[in-house]
Design a protein around this nucleic acid. Sequence first.
DNA 1: CTGAAAGCGCTAACAA
DNA 2: TTGTTAGCGCTTTCAG
Lengths: 336, 336
Amino acid sequence: MAVTLHDVAGLAGVSIKTVSNVINDYPHIRPATREKVEAAIAQLGYTPNLTARNLRSGRTGAIALAVPDLSLAYFAELAAEVIREAEAAGVVVLVEQTGADRTRELELLRSPRLKLTDGLIFSPLGMGQDDAAALDVNFPMVLLGERIFDGPTDHVTMRNVEAARAATEYLIAQGRRRIAVVGAHEGELIGSAALRLQGYREALDAAGIAYDDSIIGYTTLWHRANGARSMRELLAAGAEFDAVFGLNDTLALGAMRVLQESGRRVPDDVAVLGFDGLDEAEYSIPSLTTVDPGREWIARTAVSTLLARIAGDADAPPRTLLADYRILQRESAPAS
Amino acid sequence: MAVTLHDVAGLAGVSIKTVSNVINDYPHIRPATREKVEAAIAQLGYTPNLTARNLRSGRTGAIALAVPDLSLAYFAELAAEVIREAEAAGVVVLVEQTGADRTRELELLRSPRLKLTDGLIFSPLGMGQDDAAALDVNFPMVLLGERIFDGPTDHVTMRNVEAARAATEYLIAQGRRRIAVVGAHEGELIGSAALRLQGYREALDAAGIAYDDSIIGYTTLWHRANGARSMRELLAAGAEFDAVFGLNDTLALGAMRVLQESGRRVPDDVAVLGFDGLDEAEYSIPSLTTVDPGREWIARTAVSTLLARIAGDADAPPRTLLADYRILQRESAPAS
DNA sequence: CTGAAAGCGCTAACAA
DNA sequence: TTGTTAGCGCTTTCAG
């Protein structure tokens, strides 16, 4: 641990500047000198102290990623992509979990721990529009999720409304008329749940189908257990429907499970459609038709956008970047 | 960003040492001084530069977690736990993905990026016994997975052999005699696959059942798709069996999917049992009987062990810590 | 092409 | 109780 530039310089019989030059591939070094230095480095097993380098350069070579919880499959897959992408750019990722909790999200934005990184990719779920001011931070940041805040921040997000509308239209095209929803958030106006529900309503309207709140299942955290519970409540209330739109895959899988327990056949009695395009949606019984909202593109774009900000174009106007979506047709809602 | 101790000291009319004392809760400060300093800090919006502090103190307040891939559910849930646990201790987590690739695992151990952290929780999958020397690193490290290396390193792991044996015995107790396996690794001697297979064989031996390689499905990466593919190969080869032991849940779920496609009823025709105790195993159709290897305990223990090493007991003898397992009885292999 | 020296922002002896 | 000062290990002018 304790081997420094000075040790290497001493052994190689040069100054620390020369060693530094070698390490940083400074071009004009005499080959003989370079060799001496490299031999010394190898002999001593020297590795540069990144903390010192960071202090000097003002950069850390790390970015932070803040998501609600890695045990939510969507965020796990997102994080996997972000880390892969960052690594390709030689940057390391520090992962924070907020639990989708407003207080913790706000704390995170003020946390000195972020000083350990050059920037933040942030997926806020708990904060509301009132908290927009908290997003006016003095470090590079890219927001994931809806552009619900007007601050000067880059957003990378998906077409929630359009994608949900397309999904609903897809079900309607199969002749489904009573389409239940699982995962709605009571009274929410912004956020993914509200936007996807809006897309759902637009599709109903366009098809002349009345919106019926009695087949909307409300549940906050998009866990599988909540999808199951929500569906049980719908069934217990005697709701009638011929399709279910899960506002994400995990909910849809939980709901599908309960439907089958109750004796409904999927898709014959009830078609099921999810949202997220998770790997596991391909291997459920039946496999889940779902909307791929472009998660991979989002991860890639978030990283490259953040790195560009860090690299300097801090004054470029903030951008909103939208991923393309597509419907992955599977068995739970086949294309008729 | 550019506000430093000196700025605060200047505004408060004291020396930087006094400011430093206030920040670090040094006890003997006159209340009036403290107030002045705190006012200045608030006015300037000062936050300490952690990089500088780290350089000085030799600590970073961060640990690294290296896993194969966060899109593997087991590691996502493990990472979620590790981050939660670390946060409770005021430590931040940098996540690295190795892809279970030997070369990248070896590179990681030598990577200067680790200098950004105080220690490493490492789950190696690609490295073999020949690489044990590479694990003799000069920073605190806790290994997850088998104690297959003899280096002076702490291990936190699960009882793979016992748990797999118990799982197999559980199936045998239900009257199953032809128990297929999905996820074996050809020629592997150490590592989770080999150990779980060993537990399986021990159970067969104890019950006087002959081991039959024709019902062992080999596949490397424990992805759902591989579980499915492996099961398809077994079926195509005309293998006969009345139970399947998936060496992890993801494999088991993929295999179960294919079994049902092929018209087999689970558990009537074929019982299915997994390994990992994933959340999603509870919501498959049918729900998956599985072994919970103590993942949560492993995450907690890995963090606390690493932090203890970092805090100083570097010379304590290396320990191997074993989690308790339990079988979660569900529908895919009911307790008769 | 290489060396000397300053300083990034902070902590911790040591003084006062 | 508070101030002075010397580094932590590195990069980076500026000389030579």
